[in-house]
Write a protein that binds this DNA or RNA. Structure first.
Lengths: 221, 221
DNA sequence: AACGATAAAATTATCGATAATTATATCGAT
DNA sequence: ATCGATATAATTATCGATAATTTTATCGTT
């Protein structure tokens, strides 16, 4: 189990979340408090609390007294999340524009470089984390902590979505990494309209290609 | 205690949330698990779970092993929330425009009428609920359930903010109720640019007036 | 008096068990 | 065989108590 996190509950929460995001616990999989507690050799309380948090994050579905099930990845929900993402991410980027320094662009370059590394070693999960870090940069810089929190919330679901779709539809991670360079270039050039065009396009690219593909959930019970 | 909600945890959660939003439990107030459990004559578990949820909602501050304290209402946070609100609410309203029917406008009128009633009986809390219902209408109609959830999340904090500021700065509830009529008129007329102007203005009106006023939190420990 | 170390008290985090609820299996009637 | 009723098992929700942690009080030293 993960050693980050102070309390047992946190550790269980983070460990389970990672497993769900990575798809090791697939949609539809039932999670039983006692089963997990026994497996980890701890009592039910912290497990219960961890499941409660996952519920709040929308990673688990559950009706009261009916237990917890790893949530489906519904096409409609991804669509909704991407609509929201487009809205807040462009807002964040625009807020950033006046304060962007050379050092910021360097940092973005560095993230891209790390993405290329992850791509070469075919480390899908590290790649996704870095991809999200790239975009998180603007939320952090924009200085609206409420929106930053919101980004961190939806990031969890986006990561889970990408963990599946990248493997299936975008095996060429290197080209995804390169997809970020035009963004940095545009930022460097400073033409706001062009920046907006490229960000909106970039954000929606994955989703646009997905739209036509088959349904996402597959595992049952 | 409140009878809504299936489980004890839920009941405690809703009851405490209401108390915090209404300001009966003021910012800085410490909440002790055992104290609450004894007062309600239940065990610690459901109380603990309720506090956990309030933490997640941002109504409580807490470090691990250090207990829970009713969160401050920080000016910066309200500012952030209103920036986010403007973004998503205008998005929701715009999404709605093509589908608005006469019956929808009637429904909005009805909510306004109820707001006037609440204003006349000087029921601040019911008034705030109705005010939020008015705006929730567009999120519900727009059909993006993720954004609707987001609205419900930030609504809690907005309500708490309004519960304080309305009493202090806007005692004339009737005029606030009337402030919604121009919105309905604009919707009826159908001029998108004008609708946008009026909504943006309306959303920010409270906040703009607040900005210059004194600090919000007052209660300590 | 101010400071730091130690002891006492308060509080949360975790535990293991019971009560309440829901899901599953069994069985007789049709 | 299918259905409904009943009993059984599985699982969550709640309980009361202990362990771990943090806060507060005490007290000697400077």
């Amino acid at each position: 189990m993960d050693e980050r996190g102070q309390t047992l509950s946190e550790q269980v929460h983070l460990a389970l979340r990672e497993s769900i995001v990575r798809g090791e616990l697939p949609p539809g999989r039932r999670l039983l408090v006692l089963e997990i507690a026994n497996a980890l050799e701890i009592s039910q309380a912290p497990v219960r609390e961890a499941l409660e948090r996952l519920k709040q994050e929308g990673l688990l579905d559950s009706k009261s007294n009916k237990g917890s099930v790893v949530a489906d990845i519904r096409k409609e929900e991804i669509e909704e999340i991407y609509a929201l993402r487009e809205l807040i991410e462009w807002h964040a980027v625009r807020q950033c524009l006046p304060m962007l320094r050379q050092s910021d662009l360097d940092e973005l370059d560095a993230i891209c470089e790390r993405m290329r590394n992850a791509a070469e070693s075919d480390d899908h999960f590290r790649f996704i984390d870095l991809d999200m870090d790239f975009h998180r940069f603007f939320f952090a810089k924009a200085g609206n902590r409420t929106i930053l929190q919101l980004w961190d919330q939806i990031t969890v679901k986006i990561k889970r979505f990408l963990a599946i779709t990248n493997k299936l539809y975008f095996p060429d991670l290197l080209s995804i990494a390169e997809g970020h360079s035009p963004l940095i270039e545009a930022l460097r050039a400073g033409d706001e309209a062009e920046i907006e065009r490229r960000f909106i396009r970039h954000i929606n690219e994955v989703w646009w290609r997905m739209d036509k593909s088959k349904d996402l959930q597959r595992t049952r019970r």
